[in-house]
Design a protein around this nucleic acid. Structure first.
Lengths: 215, 215, 215, 215
DNA sequence: AATGAATGAGGGTTCATTCAT
DNA sequence: TATGAATGAACCCTCATTCAT
């Protein structure tokens, strides 16, 4: 019988349960107050049991971060060739932000990780989860912008590299802002935020079309 | 005699020294690794002495936050009446961001506080330091925008409230982003950031003039 | 049928495998860092399985000690009657030390056990493994010395009991020293040690012949 | 007033008290069962207090080792020029062993440290406490042996280096043996040991005079 | 005002061992 | 027989904080 596989599955389920609880805890208390003992209490387990599933508390955080990055892939649409690139640009952004708002918890976590890790020693060159997330979009967006440029949809002087960097920089800043808002605040402001997203999108298009200079 | 006042002054100086050291420590190690014992060692004082100046470690953090908010007032220019409001808008932003880049450390601290306090219980309605900072700009900017509107410099459909919120939201997001970058990263990217600030400013003007809709 | 015997044999083999692994571990990490979990991991077994073979971790150590004592019998030659007892004495020592150098690992283990057990409660009168080892030589050596004495080869005033005690005391001390050396050190010093063994042997003969007093 | 000095003195006294207790504990239970909690209990202090005096448990062990090495300097006599070097050699050994027997506890500790550290990673080339102890004798003994050789008191073929190494090797082995004996055993055997020390000394002299070869 | 001494609380981790399957 | 799961006990260590001087 496939006992091993069965156990492995169970084990994965357990790991996931632990990560779920860890996620809740971090969202409620922030990274600094996240600790294994409390987590164990919350799960009604002994700490030792947790150590069977994860090497140590840092390991849990990393696993959680990884899980999020895996789940929270940016929703890249296929690049349909006969679409207007700028329409695609808009659509993509709408989907992206819808995704962000829907899974705000995950965004919050990534932002918390980022800040938490900011002062910890880490291999130089390693980038934050946010950056990883953003970089997954880069290729798609570059193609898009180049295509738009070749079709003359973009104002001549705009370099696609610059444009991408600027747009992504604002996107990341805005998404981080959404993630880091307090929950109550978010509930109150959700409508405003949605409006601002639309405004931002309009501006992006305007920026691409005009190069940012007033006509 | 003025003995009391003299001692009070001395006391204030001491408090400031302590806050200086705390600031360094937080910048280097982040909020979570900030602790009183290390702070005392760094200052070559006993912990007990620190407790004479501050109630507890959280008190230090709060005092530090306050001190920054006092020092780091947004650089509001006088509203000279015969200026073009949009020129003033641009100038103000340039000064604002110059200030941010010059005092990035303080911005970093505010951002770290914000994240740190995010999950701590605090009086409802109390807003983050960033929000406080932004709100100090509100009055000035509203005046500015209204004036611009009255002079027909702004696209008709843009409400000044909306405009302020949108612009400040992006500003705060971008400033936070600058504050939270790792120092090395910031050094590498400083030029890019400055360019992006200019781009952002262009975008703002575009937004105000056109209302965000393509002509 | 012989099923029972077969299983018993299997069981013995398993026990030996476990002891082998334990031996490696102790040699590498010392007695204090020896633990069942790591042992299980090394053997790719569950800890529970180990508990089926040995009552507990101490039991393993004891079994290992016993196994070594069984294997590492001192190489007693037959006492051929027409040999010169002192020649035999020399030969025996040479074989003994050759054996020690060849199986230094086991000597190391015995020495480690000895130190480890030094402060543990144990039945009074029970002696260390080294002592056990040495005592196996006693009878042989006593015969030898007596014979030598009867042949007038030993200086009159030397009591065989005293002589044996003295010689064995030095032997044990020297052998323990060899066992406890760090491996690297041993490699570097091996030649010196061999020379010193020869010197020691010369000294023993001198002692027996002269009784230790200067001629 | 010299408050600082007073406190420093007090602090040193405290440290010594702690080391005393640690010493007892290690002698009773061996290195592996030595731990800070129990030590604190024994001293009727909280563990935290111990941490004020020593960085961690390893630090205590090292401090203890150092203290012993400082206290337990080998009793080097002055090299009086008109003395017979071999007499001096004998005298020195007698004093040395008297010292060892009198302070057997310290010798035991050094031996326990040595074994404990055997498998711990440590800077290559660093030697055990025993070795340190022995090396302090080297210079003295070399002078002694050279002088003896120049006076023709030593058998020609004996190299002083070899001689020193051999003699010290046996001394260290024998002293370690004395240190590692169980206390009860030591009490029973003390007389025997003293006799064996005399025998050993005789043998050393014999060795020096004859070069180890039977006349 | 400043400080040395001391500690309770609590988080991090490891180990030996038992239980249920 | 073998093993995954689980845990109590105990050790390591740090931090905030109080007390007495």
């Amino acid at each position: 019988m496939d006992k091993a596989a069965y156990f492995e599955q169970l084990r994965q389920k357990r790991r996931n349960d632990i990560l779920d609880a860890a996620q809740d805890m971090i969202l409620q208390q922030g990274m600094d107050d996240f600790n294994i003992q409390q987590l164990a209490r919350k799960l009604d387990l002994s700490t030792v049991t947790l150590y069977k599933y994860f090497k140590n508390s840092e390991d849990i955080a990393l696993a959680l971060q990884e899980r999020i990055l895996e789940t929270q892939k940016p929703p890249l649409p296929k690049l349909v060739s006969d679409c207007n690139p700028l329409t695609l640009f808009s659509d993509f952004h709408r989907v992206l932000y819808r995704d962000v708002l829907k899974n705000r918890e995950r965004v919050t976590l990534l932002a918390l990780f980022e800040t938490y890790l900011r002062n910890k020693p880490h291999p130089t060159g390693e980038r934050s989860a946010f950056w990883t997330y953003a970089s997954q979009i880069r290729h798609f967006m570059e193609q898009l912008l180049e295509k738009a440029q070749s079709q003359g949809l973009i104002f001549g002087s705009v370099s696609t590299d610059d444009a991408f960097d600027f747009i992504m920089s604002l996107n990341v800043a805005f998404i981080r802002q959404i993630g880091l808002m307090e929950d109550e605040c978010f509930k109150l402001e959700e409508k405003t935020i949605k409006r601002q997203i639309e405004q931002l999108l309009d501006l992006f298009l305007l920026y691409l079309k005009t190069g940012g200079t007033t006509p």
